[in-house]
Amino acid sequence: MAAPAEKHVTVAAAPPGYTAVPVRLRARQRAPHYLYVKEHRVQCSADPARPPGRTLLVLNVPPYCPQECLSRLFSRCGAVQSVQVCEKPGPGESAEVLESKFFNLRRILGFRVAYVVFKNPSRVQAAISLSPHEPLLMSSESCPVKTGILKWISCYAASLVNPEELKAEVDTFMQAYDQKVAEEEAKAVEEEGVPDEEGWVKVTRKGRRPGLPRTEAANLRALEREKRKKARKELLNFYAWQHRETKREHIAQLRKKFEEDKQRIALMQAQRKFRPY
């Protein structure tokens, strides 16, 4: 556990390969958090957003530390090109979801990791050897970090939507969507009844002879129909063995119930459930 002696040591312990950079929000706070930084190295790096050699991996970014603040913190080592904040380390999402101001808003919660990309490769080393005597401050006079009441009020203000903008966005999306659907339909019409290179013809719901829909529900329905048909044909209590069978079944049911009840009773006995008072 955090032994009290440790917290005043200027160079804090860091896992091998990492450097610990103490940070705190304002000078008022006494106990710092530690950012753990190292150069970002991946064997097969194909991510253009994180160019090898220029990217710094930062672990343990406090929840109230915004992106801008990180770039300001590290700009003391050199010009920062971009900062990418993720929930956990790993390949960034290449297939970006549609960027939208109103829909599918995602927030990254809690402590995060960040990838800081410097303009100049040499700056990464500068950042790694960063060992300030005093913890770095996340909030400064020029750009204060809002927390608490101030932050919630500004969040509330930001949640108010301008209907015009929303409308415009919806309209553009729907136009694109309608276009896409229209194209697909046109393509489907084109392919209708035309055999592919091996000679197979695709049967769709649209053509002259629509096939069964290929859904699970339709399959189940078909099975059910079969079963009902069979059940209609069957004769009950016709043969002597059927009588016997039903009787046997009845006794088996009773037996099963009896066993269950016995188990239940045993359980209740164990819980002393039969003491009325």
Binding site: A20, A31, Y64, K151
Partner: peptide, 28 residues
């Protein structure tokens, strides 16, 4: 945060800082 525990480096919660975070997050 890191803490020396024997030879192997281990991590423990940064309780001091977390307690201060309670205050930071709820400013006002």
């Amino acid at each position: 945060m890191m803490a020396a525990r024997g030879n192997a480096p281990v991590t423990v919660p940064n309780v001091e800082a977390i307690l201060e975070d309670f205050e930071v997050l709820g400013e006002g």
